[in-house]
Design a protein around this nucleic acid. Structure first.
Length: 850
RNA sequence: GCCCGAGUGGCGGAAUGGCAGACGCGGCGGACUCAAAAUCCGCUGUCCGCAAGGACGUGUGGGUUCGACUCCCACCUCGGGCACCA
């Protein structure tokens, strides 16, 4: 039955077919699944899908049990934005879009297992997204064991006294609410009042990863404001080390690994305590060796100690430059803080990095030499990194040098620069200088030696210790929108969150006609988010029996971010109809389990664009690691091998207002210029899509040339990992090739097969075997463009020599070798050659070694 | 500024130490046709030459090697990522 050709058997569970699993090797192939946008597919979308399909078909012919499926990532802002633009409900819109996508993709002949095509918006899917959320909510990170554990175990340890409470009080003396708060503070999914990215234009807060360097929203390009709000967070920082270290075990492009490493931003250094009138001020530094050169301190404006450090009056002879002409330090600090708070990240960028700050009126003691050093507040120090305070060493830090110059602060070099050094702060290697006291002498030591020496001195004297900090922040996980997974969380009258029992899942998204976020002024930082789900009064407050009789609870009214569903979809592909578990453990072990010591396991090949380097690919790793820690999966990473396919680029045209015009309607001129509706436009190349108005739909291509030609063309345009410009004109060459191939094997007038049983000549045989070798190697290496070139060569040779008919011993392997790229044509030829059934599982031709 | 990646005909690209330009587009010429399309055959890096043939040629400059698109050094250009992260 052709309908079931590409159904991959599981070893267990509802899709089990142990006989067909047999002793075959397996291949789990995965594409980054699409958002089913209303605009439909363009020819750039399926490039990756075709590539994985060719590879999957090839491996199937090599005897592999291949799992290849495609689902839909349909929750989230893009789907909702589109629904708002078209005035249709997201539910309706999403269903229509998926139907449309399925139809368009079906024509491409992708060998997917249709039983496994899930949508993140299906109740049967997001029930498990909520279930996994609860697993995360009900877990904490045990730093000693470096893994997540069930929260119940933390409660037991606290109750038994084997783990101390933060303030040392016995657990039994905590009130029930205090106990819950303490537990909640340890959860991997937790609620916190924290600085977040508030985007009024989208009506929601956003994750750091969704905000551009310009301080605008990744989607829609609206301004984003830093603001403190109470939100759900995921404790991704607990996993920072493992997320970095385990990259070494992954077969991923080095560039993506580097991006993740940079995003996590691990720095080894030391925290050093400086004594002050308000108590010790902790700073983080990667250059503790320069401690003798710390001539002032700087705190972020939001630093909690700023108030306590603000002196009642200016010390005598404080320079006007330091006071900003304010009568008191308090006035100066208040004015500076107000100015800093009013700035968006955008404004901070626009200021061109000019360092500003204000003196607090108080001093700290440099522990190395006992010097009294002034304490400043300045916004070039960020509260979100390290301790939010720095020891300023202008001699060895460019930013501190700039600040010191501007405010006339002392500069002491503690590393000897080369003789010809004409620069300012010196960051390079050199012997330590000016770095000795009665108890410590670093002079003459190299940077590394000095770091080691001072680390032990700090530790021994109680002034500090070695520490590691990360740029990575916890993941902001709630959104003030409608079209997302509801949290499986309710609140009782304490206002503390309660995870719903598994029996109450799914918490279905209630129908809501007025799903739009309230229109807010995108530039108004002070506006408040409004939760669309709060409009559903019957739902927002629910009577539930959570074990102590029916009571009223408030539901969580935020929804999950669009990334939630994509954090685990590959696992659901494995066991899409399982109603008892998100995935059967045996099924997961079969498809994703580690195959050797040191192998993290995971999907065998994951193909997608580079744009998810620090979003989806980081979040999915986090979820997977939590599931691994809790024993729900055997693989410690979701994606063993990652491959970034290139993009299809297309010419885009901008008019004199810098606005893109419909590329299809642009007219080229003989002199190389272009015009649109009579006005001149300028050409550029960019990723095909709606925003550049340069999308080419697949339907015309299907109509003119057929799906096989489109597949063949996209695979031939260039290396799989390289972006390449679309050129409709070039397609005809591959169409001609397929026609030539057809005519070589089939008489066009009679429809009779042009295959002869006579043996092929030696030259043809040699070429055939060379081709079999090379094409297999190319498919294996994802070098589809060169595989096609070699098949064309073989066919061109046959066109020349086999005028009386093609020997069967050449025709059959040629058709089989074509099958991964052009399956429709190959199947037809295979049938014409008198072969029964599909060639999908025919062995791929193997070259005769002689 | 820092970190990646890439520069080869008119165009997309091939060759990863061994005949540079496979394969495709486009172009030129020819066959078939009343004609056109389709198809088939031949040519198509640049320069000199009627030709045979010769010289030059993989961003630029150097180096390693019997031999370099390929390896090394420096630079230029383009693309991507990060960017007050202490």
């Amino acid at each position: 039955d052709a309908e079931h050709t590409f159904e991959a058997p599981n070893p267990a569970g509802p899709l089990a077919d142990p006989e067909r699993v047999g002793g075959r090797p397996k291949l789990f192939l995965l594409d980054m699944f699409p958002y089913p946008s209303g605009a439909g597919l363009h020819v750039g979308h399926p490039l990756g899908y075709i590539g994985t399909d060719v590879f999957g078909r090839y491996r199937r012919m090599k005897g592999f049990n291949v799992l290849h499926a495609l689902g839909y990532d349909a929750f989230g802002l893009p789907a909702e934005q589109y629904a708002i633009e078209t005035g249709t409900h997201p539910q309706v819109r999403t269903e229509q879009n998926i139907v449309n996508y399925r139809a368009q993709l079906r024509r491409l002949g992708l060998a997917h297992d249709p039983r496994r095509s899930v949508s993140t918006t299906d109740e049967s899917y997001y029930r498990w997204t909520q279930w996994i959320f609860l697993q995360i909510f009900e877990s904490w990170y045990d730093r000693d064991l470096a893994r997540a554990r069930p929260i119940a175990e933390l409660r037991e340890e606290l109750a038994a006294g084997t783990r101390a409470t933060p303030d040392g009080r016995p657990w039994a003396e905590f009130t029930p609410v205090e106990q819950r708060r303490l537990i909640d503070d340890h959860r991997l999914a937790y609620i916190a009042e924290a600085p977040v990215n508030w985007c009024p234009g989208l009506g929601t807060v956003l994750a750091n990863e969704e905000v551009t360097a310009e301080g605008r929203s990744d989607r829609g390009n609206y301004p984003v404001f830093r603001r403190s709000m109470r939100q759900w967070m995921m404790r991704i920082t607990a996993y920072a080390d493992r997320l970095i270290d385990d990259l070494d075990r992954l077969d991923w492009p080095e560039s993506i690994k580097t991006m993740q490493r940079n995003w996590i931003g691990r720095s080894h250094g030391a925290t050093v305590a400086f004594t002050s009138g308000a108590g010790p001020i902790e700073v983080f530094t990667t250059r503790a060796d320069t401690l003798f050169g710390a001539t002032f301190m700087v705190l972020a404006p939001e630093h909690p100690m700023v108030d306590a450090l603000t002196a009642p009056a200016w010390p005598e002879r404080t320079r006007p430059l330091w006071t900003g002409l304010h009568p008191t330090p308090a006035a100066a600090v208040a004015a500076y803080r107000a100015a800093a708070a009013a700035k968006t990240d955008l404004a901070r960028q626009a200021e061109d990095r000019e360092k500003t700050g204000v003196f607090t009126g108080s001093f700290a003691v440099n522990p190395a030499n006992g010097d009294l050093i002034p304490i400043f507040v300045a916004d070039y120090v960020l509260m979100g990194y390290g301790t939010g305070a720095v020891m300023a060493v202008p001699g060895q830090d460019e930013r501190d040098w700039e600040f010191a110059e501007r405010y006339g602060l002392r500069i002491v070099r503690t590393v000897q620069p080369p003789d010809d050094w004409e620069g300012r702060a010196y960051l390079g290697e050199g012997p330590a200088i000016n770095s000795a006291s009665a108890t410590l002498d670093l002079n003459g030591l190299s940077v590394e030696e000095a770091k080691a020496a001072i680390a032990s001195w700090l530790e021994a004297n109680g002034h500090g210790r070695a520490t590691t900090t990360y740029r990575l922040r916890d993941w902001l996980f709630s959104r003030q929108r409608y079209w997302g997974e509801p949290f499986p969380i309710v609140y009782d009258d304490t206002g503390l969150p309660i995870g719903l029992p598994e029996s109450m899942l799914p918490v279905t998204l209630p129908p809501l006609d007025d799903f739009r976020p309230r229109a807010l002024d995108p530039d108004d930082a002070t506006s408040e988010p409004e939760l669309p789900l709060s409009r559903v009064e019957w739902w927002a407050c629910a009577e539930l029996d959570l074990g102590d009789g029916p009571r009223l609870y408030e539901r969580e009214l935020n929804v999950m971010p669009q990334w939630a569903g994509s954090c685990w979809y590959e696992l659901r592909y494995l066991d899409p109809t399982n109603e008892n578990r998100f995935v059967d453990p045996e099924v997961e072990r079969y498809w994703m389990g580690p195959v050797a010591p040191g192998d993290p396991g995971g999907v065998d090949l994951y193909v997608g664009g580079v744009e998810h380097a620090v979003l989806h690919l980081l979040y999915a790793r986090l979820w997977h690691k939590v599931l691994f820690d809790l024993g729900h999966v055997s693989s410690s990473e979701p994606y063993r091998r990652l491959f970034n396919q290139g993009y299809i680029l297309a010419a885009a045209y901008k008019d004199e207002r810098e606005i893109y015009v419909e590329a299809e309607e642009v007219e080229p001129h003989a002199d190389g210029t272009f015009s649109y509706q009579g006005r001149p436009v300028v050409r550029e190349w960019g990723k095909m899509g709606k925003s550049l108005k340069n999308a080419v739909g697949p339907d015309d291509i299907y109509a003119d040339y057929g799906a096989d030609t489109l597949r063949l063309y996209e695979m031939s345009m260039g290396p799989f990992d390289t972006s390449r410009p679309w050129s409709t004109r070039d397609i005809v060459g591959y169409y001609r090739f397929l026609q030539r191939l057809w005519r070589n094997l089939v008489d066009e007038r009679t429809g009779a097969i042009r295959v002869v049983d006579a043996p092929a000549d030696d030259e043809t045989l040699r070429l055939l075997h060379r081709t079999m070798d090379a094409v297999a190697a190319d498919y294996e290496a994802l070098h589809f463009n060169t595989a096609v070139a070699k098949l064309i060569e073989l066919n061109n040779h046959l066109t020349r020599v086999a005028t009386g008919g093609v020997p069967r011993e050449v025709a059959e392997p040629l058709v089989l070798m074509m099958a991964p790229v052009t399956p429709h044509l190959a199947e037809e030829l295979w049938a014409s050659l008198g072969q029964p059934g599909s060639l999908a599982y025919e062995p791929f031709p193997v070259a005769d070694p002689t």
